[in-house]
Design a protein around this nucleic acid. Structure first.
Length: 321
DNA sequence: GCGACAG
DNA sequence: ATCTTGTCGC
């Protein structure tokens, strides 16, 4: 039995984004990328924009954040004309819906922690704990996990299926606020809090995760992070390609990273297939065998059912929050 | 035109 | 992931 490691599970990136926006002085503007860089990864720029304009927020001057080409943002709560009016009022000039001279009015001296850089380092360290060999008694059940979201709310569903009969033996879900937006490479920090809420420890259980395992830029995708942090066997099963070179186009194409086999693209009936990789405490061979056994359609059945359940529960919640 | 690309 | 109608195909 491997010891369970701990990782940062309650990072409030949404709060940090609002905190950064609050630091932009009147008469100045910043770009989504400026805030993303201050948080430690410019690749979070799109997430910054999404949070600012999609999440109901407090009294932050979000009209002072624009895209890299000077284009203004807006949402149902604040129209483009209202954003324009506020900026003009603060002495920022707008021409044709853009900031007239972005460089002259730009602010980027944020004083916030470089959280994403820290999380990257955490992933690099935790990846060393991944066990890529079978480490469980003969599995009886596999539980599929999937999430569904609206704004800063989410629902994660778990569907447990008997490997022998392929019957659903359990289905649960958990809902809650989500304070970490979707950013490629950091999916676990978004999903882990709700996954922990829905998960219950059971012997012989294997978790099937909707996302990559070690087939990830830092070798530590959501499936591996869930496995290491909950100390449970996990399989990564992603619907699309993230990293690695796909060799050939057969039903079991190898996916190589730095000349090493890190995943398999499983496509029994052709098509896009799914990308299977080791999450934790399992071998790639066993992970593939289990996925093949559970694939009725393109998506392994526990994952498909978890997706249906999570979406249904989330929509119920939307009507009555 | 070039880079990025999980959910 | 989510927003969404009808439509093409097995």
């Amino acid at each position: 039995m491997s010891p369970s490691a701990s990782c940062s599970e309650d990072v409030d990136l949404i709060g940090l984004i609002f905190e950064a926006v609050g630091q932009i002085p009147e008469g100045k503007v910043s770009t989504y990328g400026d805030i993303a860089k201050a948080m430690g990864d410019v690749r979070a720029a799109k997430a910054v924009a999404q949070v600012l304009w999609d999440v109901d927020c407090q009294e932050v001057p979000r009209h002072r954040v624009v895209s890299a080409d000077g284009t203004l943002g807006s949402c149902v709560a604040i129209s483009v004309s209202e954003v324009t009016r506020r900026l003009m009022e603060e002495g920022v000039f707008i021409h044709n819906g853009r900031i007239a001279s972005l460089e002259a009015t730009r602010f980027a001296d944020f004083h916030i922690p470089s959280v994403l850089r820290q999380l990257q380092a955490e992933q690099e360290a935790l990846r060393l704990s991944v066990v890529d060999s079978d480490d469980f008694p003969r599995p009886a059940c596999v539980s599929g996990l999937d999430a569904s979201y609206t704004k800063d709310w989410g629902c994660v569903a778990l569907v447990r299926m008997d490997l022998e009969s392929l019957e659903v033996v359990e289905a649960r879900s958990a809902v809650g606020r989500v304070r970490f937006p979707y950013i490629t490479g950091y999916l676990a920090y978004r999903e882990l809090p709700l996954i922990r809420k829905v998960f219950s420890d059971r012997d012989g259980d294997i978790l099937l995760i909707d996302g990559h395992g070690i087939l990830h830029p830092r070798g530590f995708g959501v499936a591996s992070q869930v496995g290491v942090c909950l100390d449970v066997a996990t399989i990564g099963a992603a619907k699309s390609h993230l990293v690695g070179a796909i060799e050939g186009d057969g039903p079991k194409a190898k996916v190589m990273v730095d000349g090493e086999l890190k995943g398999i693209r499983l496509s029994p009936k052709g098509g896009k297939g799914i990308f299977v990789s080791v999450g934790h405490r399992i071998s790639l061979t066993t992970a593939c065998a289990l996925c093949e056994r559970l694939m009725i359609g393109r998506i392994p059945e526990p994952l498909r059912l978890a997706h249906v359940l999570a979406t249904r529960r989330r929509k119920e919640l939307e009507i009555e929050p």
